[in-house]
Design a protein around this nucleic acid. Structure first.
Lengths: 204, 204
DNA sequence: AATTAGATATACAATATGTATAATCAATTC
DNA sequence: GAATTGATTATACATATTGTATATCTAATT
């Protein structure tokens, strides 16, 4: 007697809805409380579900955190990074990229909590790093477009890694106190200009 | 009947010795294992003492971490920062400062674990931040010496914060994969030169 | 020999993640 | 309408960790 399989359109929709509610509650917790008080119990209560439901939906604490990150990434405007590849002026594209990242880091303050979680959970950190690899590839392509032919690979790698560090969350967080999002963006953009300058004037 | 007070030269020496042994074991644990496995039980066993002894000596997990940081700071060469204030050439002093910090971050890989602990324990983070305030003051003084009189305060603040971020541990960690300590230092130094350049050529 | 500080032994409380099993409840299929 | 199924819940348990409390032990000091 094979068990009959259910497709359940309405039921999976309800499950997806609770899933979203849990993610929203987790984001809110990361935003308002610190990561220290981020427990599955707290999140579950905030979402109006049981702790066990969280395990059913996300498998583990790490799974929940990854889901939160993916949710932020989806609504954070990172998809706009694609348009930088179509811009004719690579320098303007670099400015735009910095702008997109500043907006991303500042959009949802829960990312601070996520980065804190990365520090304690190495496997979670790796999962996030894999997602960020696309960012590095994009940046590498951009630098290659921007650099003179004579620019040595080592200098290009330096520029890529430096800009990667400059557009990372820790740098954004370090520059944020006492500055608006736009001011932080301007500071980082200037620093990035300086980072690529040697690639464009190799003779100096 | 007032209890007679003991000075105990030999006994406090023995206590200091076990204290050092616990700190050493904690550093080793942070270096070899990740912060995730940094428990007082693990550290105590590695030091050959009981977990209760750790509480007797450091009061709490946070106290132990602070002691580890202080130990690293003491033997990490940060005291050499003082000599940068006596150097006549402020640009050379800046290079020297970057050098000292690169050496510091790379000297003991336990600092990575300490920064991870900062992410989870806000009070510990604040304790470390207070210790790092001296670094910011030194940098501010250096920038003031280095900048033209016409350089606006806003530009100085930008330079200070940017260099502060560039010489922080996250930047060092981001640039470290695939680079020697000296190479990382060179990249950061170049970026710092670019950060102070506008302060010296305000007309451009 | 009495005293004392440091370390230990043992126990307990509180919180957290994660697993296991049975029960509930509404949506779906027959 | 009745049986079935997936999602959720209730309850219980195992494990690990921080932190506290109390009494004991040991070696240094008076």
């Amino acid at each position: 007697m094979p068990p009959r399989s259910y497709v359940s359109p309405g039921r999976s929709a309800a499950a997806a809805e609770t899933r979203e509610r849990v993610i929203a509650a987790a984001s809110r917790t990361l935003r308002e409380e610190s990561i220290a008080r981020f427990s599955l119990d707290t999140v579950a209560k905030a979402a109006g579900v049981t702790r066990l439901t969280v395990y059913n939906q996300f498998g583990s604490r790490r799974g929940l955190l990854e889901a939160v990150f993916d949710g932020i990434a989806q609504s954070g405007g990172l998809h706009r990074l694609a348009e930088t590849m179509t811009m004719t002026d690579p320098r303007a594209a670099l400015d735009r990229m910095v702008e997109i990242f500043c907006a991303f880091w500042s959009r949802d303050s829960a990312v601070g909590g996520l980065h804190a979680a990365m520090a304690t959970d190495p496997e979670f950190a790796e999962a996030i790093s894999e997602r960020n690899e696309r960012r590095r590839k994009l940046l590498t392509a951009l630098i290659d477009r921007l650099a003179d032919k004579s620019a040595p690979p080592r200098a290009r790698k330096d520029a890529v890694d430096l800009i990667f560090a400059l557009t990372s969350y820790p740098t954004f967080a370090a520059l944020s106190p006492g500055r608006s999002k736009e001011e932080v963006c301007a500071v980082v953009q200037t620093a990035c200009h300086a980072a690529v300058a040697p690639l464009q004037e190799p003779s100096r």
